[in-house]
Amino acid sequence: MKEIRVPAADSALRRSSWQQKARFQKRLFILLALTPALGGYILFTLYPNVMSVYYSLLHWDGIQKPVFVGLNNFKQLFHDAYVWRALWHNLLFMLTIPPLVVIISLILAYLLSNKSYRFSSGLKVLFFFPNVLSTVVVSLLWAFIYDGSFGLLNAMLRLVGLDVGNWYWLGEKETALWALIPPSVWGGVGFYFVIFMNAMSTIPKSLYESAVLEGASHMTRLFRITFPLMMPIIRVSAIFMMLGIFKGFENVLVMTNGGPSGSTDVIGLYMFNIAFGDSTRNYGYASAIGMLLFVILVLAKLIIDKFTANREAEY
């Protein structure tokens, strides 16, 4: 029997056909795998953002027929003193909350990573505990602490000899805005504490051992070794905190609802009240405020990228 040989051209053609089929199947699998996520992104993120641009040109209460007003919403926006007051409160939170959260989380993570405490596991759970609670629960808890009649804060002040009477910390203009900062810091430290601890575990121990041999103190090691090597992670954490501060308003809604007399109003809460308030319902004007907020967040992100080093740490 003679041996049948396949010509080289036919073999190359079959190989090419098989490779094309494999590439097609790979692309089809990637498309099918990405379709749910891409569809969700288009439906719940991209489409609402595009419609917000359209709504910002309308006067619409969500029920009656919308009226096209062009740029009148933006003209009203720049003359609205309540908007700029709310933005000032957001700016104040942005200048105070992220630095406090980063510093406290960084120090706690460094201490538990580099010192052997007897109850270190329990301390980790204790620090992360606020993140298990919802924002509403945390807000109600701190509202109880600030209560003037039976609040924990006034009771502790009386124990140390500072009798402030029945001072309602959330009901007075002088203290209401500042009283919102500790709940946000307390609720954010645990999350970033865990992130910083995981990041510190990747730093080679040889760097700390060399610093100890040279007589470096804990603070020197923290600010000369740990802090610079973790700067990319700190930078990303600061961006996330900044976004949360400008967009979030749940704790303000629960604790003060913007009062007293608008002294704790923030831009997210003001936009929410404009869109869904019974007497001020105007989706168009609320969308215009959302466009302003979008521009502010983009500019803030560009400023952070400009003045913060964005390079990988090298050991």
Results as ranks from 00 to 15, higher is better:
267 I>D: 05
212 V>C: 09
124 K>D: 14
140 L>W: 01
168 Y>H: 09
123 L>C: 10
14 R>D: 05
58 L>I: 07
213 L>Q: 06
226 T>H: 11
185 V>S: 05
151 G>T: 10
300 A>I: 09
195 I>K: 02
275 A>Q: 08
33 A>G: 00
249 F>Y: 15
204 P>H: 07
167 W>R: 11
205 K>S: 14
160 V>I: 15
147 D>M: 03
18 W>A: 14
159 L>Q: 10
129 F>H: 04
311 R>D: 03
94 M>G: 07
194 V>F: 02
20 Q>C: 00
68 F>K: 03
62 G>H: 09
26 K>M: 08
93 F>H: 11
44 F>L: 12
110 Y>W: 15
254 V>I: 14
54 Y>V: 14
21 K>T: 06
156 M>G: 04
2 K>C: 04
24 F>Y: 05
88 W>R: 14
175 T>W: 14
290 G>K: 02
226 T>P: 10
275 A>L: 05
252 V>T: 09
86 A>H: 12
273 N>Y: 06
292 L>P: 02
190 G>D: 10
61 D>F: 02
151 G>W: 11
208 Y>D: 09
234 I>N: 07
180 L>S: 05
290 G>I: 01
58 L>W: 08
239 I>R: 04
201 S>G: 06
1 M>C: 02
297 L>C: 13
208 Y>L: 11
180 L>I: 07
92 L>W: 10
52 S>A: 13
284 G>E: 06
89 H>R: 03
115 K>C: 10
259 G>Y: 01
130 P>R: 08
63 I>M: 08
230 M>V: 03
312 E>V: 11
23 R>I: 02
52 S>E: 05
65 K>G: 06
261 S>Y: 13
215 G>E: 12
221 R>F: 00
286 A>K: 08
291 M>K: 02
153 L>T: 07
153 L>M: 14
63 I>A: 07
10 D>M: 14
104 I>W: 06
233 I>F: 01
306 K>F: 08
307 F>L: 14
100 L>M: 14
156 M>I: 13
283 Y>C: 00
193 F>T: 01
59 H>I: 01
202 T>L: 14
180 L>M: 15
104 I>M: 10
304 I>N: 06
90 N>K: 11
244 G>Q: 13
147 D>N: 15
120 S>D: 10
113 S>F: 01
144 F>C: 03
34 L>D: 00
209 E>I: 00
212 V>S: 11
168 Y>Q: 12
35 T>D: 00
35 T>G: 05
243 L>F: 13
70 G>R: 10
249 F>C: 09
106 L>T: 11
234 I>F: 08
246 F>G: 00
46 L>T: 08
300 A>D: 00
309 A>L: 15
99 P>Y: 09
212 V>L: 14
288 A>G: 07
87 L>V: 12
239 I>Q: 12
241 M>V: 04
171 G>V: 04
303 I>P: 01
92 L>R: 11
170 L>F: 14
